[in-house]
Write a protein that binds this DNA or RNA. Structure first.
Length: 198
DNA sequence: CTGCCGATATACT
DNA sequence: GTATATCGGCAGC
């Protein structure tokens, strides 16, 4: 079973979509990985969100239709990617924080500059690591995951989200800190910070 | 293993 | 000027 996630999947509250994205598969060319850690971001309701203060050139994709990729550049060197949620005009997204490698491991190792001896858990265990391994950058901002116009797609392969995912505070923010909007697959070795459960 | 620190571009005050 | 949805290197356990 390999079912492309459709428009209706993404057009829901970002917290709901976040939990449902756990154990889904992201595919880009020869590379694929199973999503094991996510964070939800809102709009004017979420002080940690890039969209909190309204529409800007950077966050415009977050305000657009669901099922698109919102890619941003941060710390002068890293890209991170989000899946846009909610109806067109309402800003929200889910940050893809970590994934378990499935295929294309050799090319991902090259892009991450990891030797063949390095543990696989270092390959995709962070949002910028995931983008580096998949070669996702600003050119993918706004990519349509439903039509696959940039050949990036998300699938349900029949592996359900965990019944009881681990939950905790979002990482690296200084506002909206008390929102428990990070979820991950309990016990998965690819999770970036497995010890912050609340 | 943990914690500190610098890198380095863009957004925002 | 200051902050940032991060990471890897290095020091010290």
């Amino acid at each position: 079973m390999r079912e492309l996630l459709d428009h209706a999947f993404y057009q829901r509250d970002s917290q709901t979509v976040a939990v449902d994205l756990l154990n889904k598969v992201v595919v880009y060319g020869a590379m694929s990985a199973r999503i094991v850690e996510v964070e939800a971001y809102g709009g004017s309701d979420d002080p940690a969100s890039h969209a909190f203060r309204g529409l800007t050139p950077r966050n415009a994709v977050m305000f657009g239709p669901p099922g698109r990729l919102y890619v941003y550049f941060t710390y002068g060197m890293h890209f991170c990617c989000n899946v846009v949620c909610d109806e067109d005009g309402r800003a929200s997204a889910v940050l893809l924080r970590a994934a378990a490698p499935l295929t294309g491991i050799a090319i991902m190792r090259q892009r991450r500059r990891l030797s063949s001896e390095a543990p696989l858990r270092h390959l995709l265990s962070g949002p910028a690591k995931l983008c580096q391994a998949f070669a996702i950058d600003q050119t993918h901002n706004g990519a349509d995951l439903v039509s696959g116009d940039h050949k990036i797609e998300l699938f349900d392969d029949g592996f359900a989200p965990p019944d009881r995912p681990a939950r905790g505070k979002r990482v690296g923010i200084s506002r909206g800190e008390d929102f428990l909007w990070r979820w991950w697959v309990r016990g998965d070795s690819n999770v970036s910070r497995p010890n912050d459960e609340k």
